[in-house]
Each structure stands twice: as structure tokens, then as C-alpha cells.
Write a protein that binds this DNA or RNA. Structure first.
Length: 547
RNA sequence: GAGUCGGUAGCUCAGCUGGUAGAGCAGCAGACUUUUAAUCUGCGGGUCCUGGGUUCGAUCCCCAGCCGACUCACCA
């Protein structure tokens, strides 16, 4: 951060000095203007400003051209100066608030002596309040013709002024406040994210689900396979971890009689960062007593369709078009069309692809897809091994620390092959169900086929959007799967972290139930056509800036 | 973790074979009461990411590091 020059003493308020500022240092120039505003007896940091109307709402008001003889409505607006056109004794400012942008016209005679002085001390990025008549200029531009000018806050740092806005990815992430102002998609995504979350909550609440909050600080990182963040409680002097999943506490609530329960919460995984991974992210998990994976499948489908319907109207397809400007020069512009109009109802763009969420979604058995794409029965151990080497999927797990290799368990190898060979073909949305049991330690087995777990995942363009089970409620089997370390999985990769209290809870009787997990960030990415998780999270984790 | 690319003025970028850097916008001074990516005249502004090395001389070449992006690996 740039600090105002401390060696130049602040002038006393009485004088009307022009503090010597290095005119090449924009921050110093702005600080000098700040002092001049103070010298005029005006608070450069502003005060309460009541009764202002959002810019978008002002633009909706009926209005006439200013010299038509009729007087337009008087409005008050507050916002940031993002454009300045100085015409001598008249200024045009573009004022931006989170709803939009509007032109303000300020004449020397109209806003008075003090107002005119303040206007001349106004920079791009300052916050101002305007009261005036709303109408149109000769050229038809909706405009507020200022009667009063109120200083609301000085910006001591210069703002990005390039027409094309912020381009540097790092600046966009580190200075998200600027990104929100100068990259319109950032604000749009923030709104769409909330809309999705609200839709999910409304949908579940209306079906009798109870939203709860469970502890972030836990003694055991359970419910998923991931390395946790370690922390420590001082007063109790015990190690704690930040949760990596929501599952086990919510299932305890099933035991406690909350038949339909969900949580939307932050989980933390101490792993790599990529365009699909942030160390903290938001999960939805829900549990519904007396259901199973197929009841959850229906629920998931309805839930997603509700989200798509909520988001669809603000989803756009972009294309560039060439046109000739006033001077006859050929230029390009981007045209945005509502995607529902172009692609059809419930179809949204995803990069150069699209996704059609019209129900019913496709449903396919894991084993059938495996057979179709890999080319052998997933139960056939010898054939799977042969296919693994054909597709160059290693059948051993190498442990770097002990320098040893272990043969992967059959189901682990099957799953690796599925990820490698089948997933890329899953355009979706498609429910893949009936998973190999060994990789699903929290899932109920099919009574008729104990090697199959009653689990589904929802895939869209190779991305896993949802994961659901018929929940395992048999404490004896659950304890056994927890204790069994899968060959071919490292301990860190394993979900098999024993939680004695959870087993005890199951022993008191958890109803048969269906459960669902959805990564909210990935869902928002997909529905808002955002290729990176960093842009659906306002403040993604970045390495601290080195000094 | 590996590879590739990038980091130059407040912002967006250019900079050829190595000779200490330019543009537009922004800023400063001036003109203009209907402009709208305003226009016109003039001016100022750089730790060329950091540290080493090679060289008479490095923004440029070499090495190391920092930060970011992308691809891959990892990943419920």
C-alpha cells in the first residue's frame, strides 16, 4: 500500500494551499486533492447519504429530453466515478453502482461555487452523491442533471482506467474489489452463486428438510479421503482438524430422528490448488431417512432443474461480430444472447460445449459403461488386468517413503480404469450407478450382489457433479470397512478413518437412508459457464505476496 | 510435484541482432455549458519482478529465486 507522504506536513485548514505534489505520482496528487477538499471545510470521507435510488432503478424511470419543457423526476444517486468528460464549464461523469452505470451532467452555474470546486477535485474512483433531475440529453443519453454535488469518499489510489478493464489475472484475484467494479462478469457470478444457493435452500426447505450447522473443528477427519488442516485447541490442549466432509455428523442427526437434514458448509482439504481445486470449498450434503439412491436420484434431478431454471435467464451465449463504426472502420463487438433463446430451454453453454438439463437425465450402470468402453466385464479379474496394461493404467501403487509397491485391489484398479477410460466419454448429465463395493466404505451393498454398492455419481462432461449413496446403516459392516485398509490405497487416500463415536451412534439405530453430496463450487462453475473455481469464489487462496 | 508461457509507467500493451525504453488511456497545465472510449495544445512520469553471472555495455543472453497463468500429475 502506498502511504501518504509523511514528510510533507499537513497544511492547516485555514489556508487554501496547493501542496507541492509530485504530479507524476498519482497517489500524491490525490492526497493533495484530499487536503484541498479538507481545506474547503468538506469531509473527504463523506457522511450518511439518505434516500438514494439504485442506478438501474433510475434508468427505469420515464423521462423526457431536458429542453422539452417538462420537468423530469428528481433523483438521488450514489456511486463511483468511472468516467469523466470535462467540457469546460460543464462536466459529464459516469457514475457506477452495483446495479449499473449512468451519466451525470454537472454545470458550473447549477451546482454552485463549492460544488464546482469539489467537482474539480474529483478523480476517477471517487465516490459521490448527486441529486438532480433525471432526463435525456440532446443525444438521447439518460442523464441525471445535478443540482447538488456531495463528496462521499476520496480514492487515494488510482483506479484501472483502461477501456478493456482489468486483464492481469493476478491483480483480478488479489484486488477482487477492483475486479468487481471493472469486470462485470465477476459481480454477475457472485449474484448467480447466491441465486443457486437460495434455490437449493428453498427447494429443500419446501420438501421438509432441516438445514443444520455442524462443527468445523473436529477430532477426526472423517467422511472423505483427504488430508486435513491440523490445528490445536489451547485450553483443552488437544489436536483438532478442520472438517473434510459433512457426512458423519449429519448421519448422527438421522439417528437422532431428524429424518430429512442438510448442511451447506465450508470444508477444507489440505491438498493441491488448481482450476478445479481450492483448499476451502463449499459442499452440500443431505440425508433423507427411508430413502435410497433412486429416491435421491429423483431429488437430485429436480434440484438441478430448479437451479437451471433459476440461473437460465441470466445465462448468455457470446459471439463476436464484425461491424463498421461511424468512421467506416471495421471493428469487432461481442454480442450476448440469452442462452435459453439460442440453445433451447434448460440448455446452457459450457465453454464450446453445451449441457441439456431437460429431465429425465440419462441413467447408466457403472458395470455396463465399463463393459462398453473398456471392453471387458469388470468382475473378470484377469481381463481387467490385461485392459489396465493396454490402457497404461498402473496396477501397482508405489509408496515413495517406503520404496515399496503394492498390488492394487481389484476394485481400485477397476475404478482407475473407469476414470481413465470411461469418464471422458460421459457427456451427460448422466447418473452412473451401482459402483464396485470396495471403494465405497460408507455405502450399503446390494442385497443380491454384495460386491456392488448402491451409489451413484452424476457426470457432466467428465466432471462429477453429485455423489450419492444408499447409506450404510449396519454398524458391524461399517466398523469392518473402516478397519479394512484397502490394498492399493495409501492411508491418506483412504476413507477408512475409524470414528468410534460414529459406530456407537449407528449401533443405536440409524434409519435406512439415501444421502447426497454436491460440490457447490463445481456446480456454480458449470451453471455459470466459468472454467475456473477461482472465479466462483470471491477470495480464492493465493500465495501471500512477497515483499 | 514436472513442463510451457508470462511479469516493462496507475491500467492495457509494444520494444528487432545486447547499445539504459515507447504508445493509448490515466495524471499535470491550458481551451471549451450537451459530451459519452469527448476533442485540441503543451508537460511530467520507469527498481524493465528479485539476486547473481557473461559482456566495454543486459529489459534483451545464462543461472538461481519469487509471483501468476496454462498443461500434466495428484484429487470423492
Amino acid at each position: 500500500m502506498r502511504i501518504p507522504p509523511t514528510d510533507s506536513p499537513r497544511p492547516t485548514v485555514s489556508a487554501d494551499p496547493t501542496p507541492p505534489a509530485d504530479q507524476s505520482d498519482q497517489a500524491a496528487v490525490r492526497f493533495a486533492k484530499l487536503q484541498q477538499i479538507e481545506a474547503l471545510g468538506v469531509d473527504p470521507w463523506g457522511q450518511r447519504f439518505d434516500g438514494h435510488t439504485p442506478v438501474a432503478a433510475v434508468r427505469e424511470l420515464p423521462c423526457e429530453t431536458f429542453d422539452s419543457g417538462t420537468t423530469g423526476p428528481t433523483v438521488r444517486i450514489a456511486g463511483r466515478v468511472v468516467g469523466k468528460r470535462d467540457k469546460g464549464k460543464i462536466f459529464f461523469l459516469d457514475v457506477w453502482d452495483q446495479t449499473g452505470k449512468i451519466q451525470v451532467m454537472l454545470g458550473a452555474k447549477q451546482i454552485g461555487d463549492l460544488g464546482w470546486k469539489l467537482l474539480n477535485l474529483t478523480d476517477l474512483g471517487d465516490l459521490i452523491g448527486i441529486e438532480g433531475e433525471f432526463g435525456k440529453t440532446k443525444l438521447g443519453e439518460p442523464t441525471v442533471r445535478a443540482a447538488t454535488f456531495t463528496y462521499l469518499t476520496k480514492s487515494l489510489e488510482p483506479h484501472p482506467t483502461n477501456y478493456y478493464g482489468l486483464a492481469d489475472e493476478e491483480t483480478r484475484l488479489r484486488k477482487r474489489y477492483l475486479d468487481l467494479i471493472y469486470t462485470s462478469d465477476t459481480l454477475r457470478r457472485a449474484h448467480q452463486r447466491v441465486k443457486i444457493l437460495r434455490t437449493i435452500r428453498n427447494h429443500l426447505d419446501s420438501q421438509g428438510f432441516l438445514e443444520v450447522e455442524t462443527p468445523v473443528l473436529q477430532a477426526v477427519a472423517s467422511g472423505a479421503a483427504a488430508r486435513p488442516f491440523d490445528t490445536h485447541h489451547n485450553a483443552l490442549d488437544i489436536p483438532l482438524v478442520l472438517r473434510i466432509a459433512l457426512e458423519l455428523p449429519l448421519k448422527r442427526l438421522l439417528v437422532g430422528g431428524i429424518e430429512k437434514v442438510y448442511e451447506i458448509g465450508r470444508v477444507f482439504r489440505n491438498e493441491g490448488i488448481s482450476h478445479k481445486h481450492n483448499p476451502e470449498f463449499t459442499m452440500l450434503e443431505l440425508y433423507s431417512a427411508y430413502g435410497d439412491l433412486f429416491s435421491i436420484m429423483d431429488l437430485t434431478e429436480n434440484l438441478l432443474v430448479a437451479c437451471v431454471d433459476a440461473i437460465g435467464p441470466s445465462s448468455f451465449v457470446e459471439r463476436t461480430e464484425k461491424y463498421k463504426n461511424d468512421k467506416g472502420e471495421e471493428q469487432e463487438r461481442t454480442i450476448r444472447t440469452p442462452s435459453f433463446e439460442v440453445l433451447g430451454p434448460r440448455t446452457i453453454p459450457w465453454g464450446d460445449k453445451q449441457v441439456n438439463f431437460t429431465p429425465p437425465f440419462q441413467r447408466a450402470k457403472y458395470g455396463d459403461l465399463f463393459c462398453q468402453h473398456v471392453g471387458c466385464d469388470m468382475q473378470d479379474r484377469a481381463a481387467v488386468k490385461a485392459k489396465a496394461s493396454e490402457f497404461k493404467v498402473p496396477d501397482k501403487l508405489h509408496d515413495e517413503k517406503t520404496k515399496t509397491s503394492v498390488e492394487k485391489e481389484h476394485d481400485v484398479l477397476v475404478n482407475d480404469l473407469f476414470s481413465e477410460v470411461v469418464e471422458p466419454h460421459l457427456v451427460g448429465p448422466v447418473f452412473v450407478y451401482d459402483y464396485p463395493a470396495a471403494i465405497c466404505p460408507l455405502t450399503k451393498r446390494k442385497p443380491s450382489e454384495p460386491h456392488i454398492a448402491e451409489r451413484f455419481e452424476l457426470y457432466v462432461h467428465g466432471m462429477e457433479l453429485a455423489n450419492a449413496y444408499t447409506e450404510l446403516n449396519d454398524p458391524i459392516t461399517q466398523e469392518a470397512t473402516f478397519r479394512k485398509q484397502l490394498a492399493g490405497q495409501s492411508e491418506e487416500d483412504s476413507m477408512a478413518k475409524l470414528d468410534d463415536d460414529f459406530i456407537r451412534a449407528l449401533r443405536h439405530g440409524m434409519p435406512p437412508a439415501g444421502g447426497l453430496g454436491i460440490g457447490i463450487d463445481r456446480l456454480v462453475m458449470l451453471l455459470t459457464n466459468t472454467p475456473t473455481i477461482r472465479d466462483v469464489i470471491l477470495f480464492p487462496l493465493l500465495r501471500p505476496e512477497g515483499k
